[in-house]
Amino acid sequence: MPEVLKAPLVVEFPFTRSLGPVQSAFLTGLRERVVLGVRTGDGRVLVPPVEYDPVTAEEIRDLVEVAPTGTVTTWAWNHAPRRGQPLDTPFAWALVRLDGADTALLHALDAPGPDAVRTGMRVRVRWAAERTGAITDIACFEPYDGDPTPPGDHTGQFEEPVTGIIAPARLDYTYSPGRAQSDYIAALSGRRTVGERCPSCRKVYVPPRGACPTCGVATSEQVEVGPRGTVTTFCIVNIKAKNLDIDVPYVYAHIALDGADLALHGRIAGIPYDEVRMGLRVEPVWTEGARYPDHYRPTGEPDADYDTYKELL
């Protein structure tokens, strides 16, 4: 039995965020070395600020400046920083209640080791040299023995406020298609298409999934299908997809390989795009080293009767 395949899968996207008035002031403040909180209906100051009062649900917009110095309320040591974290040497994740605030802000605390960190210790903001209006404008916190810095009286009005940010997100997976798809892919390397038959409804799934989605039972009986098949339906693609190197227009078709009970997807070529039709008989065209057929081309057989494939639409 071929081995089960595995490969890295990275999912990443630069999401954009519209900040709204409160986050806009907060992040613009960081750019200007000002930390802003917001005052709630009952007089508490929340840092980082929020747009709506967690107690009354009322909209809150009363921005108040707090000090860049504060107290660690709790912490955890990070032995092995990962990519994208604030520091590349071991550090503490700390909740810091800034002087003048009633809530704590999560950030990195630069310290030589866990023995140098304790709840209640005094810290201050270490500003990043280059600031753009982002939480990373605070490079980290650092231990601080001096007097509290009195907060200023900024009200959150800035020239050229930051109104949006890019928030890149990245997820690293190890992807495995599982046993059934691995078998299918192994067979494709010999230019054979092998599906699996459901022991209950007898339908042949291509590609196989290892289980029948309607009967809910495992499948294992392998069935070679094709190589020829019938175009059950299709569309003509006229817009170029970003990740595909195919000239438009081209035909994207559902193809029921002979012996399969479900159509798979492929491109039709070797025929003018506007002559492709439902019922067209096709066969795969392979290129050297490719995992999948490059496209399907007409076999020259007469078209299939509608009745022979209408259940596969």
Binding site: L5, A7, P8, L9, Y175, P177, Q181, I185, T232, T233, F234, C235, V237, I239, A241, N243, L244, I246, Y250, Y252, A253, H254, H265, G266, R267, M278, R291, Y292, L313
Partner: peptide
Amino acid sequence: IPFQQPLLAGAGGFFAPHVRA
């Protein structure tokens, strides 16, 4: 998704063949 044939059309391409059907 690794090992999978890239989808050859966008969301409209997904639904357009059903419209033709």
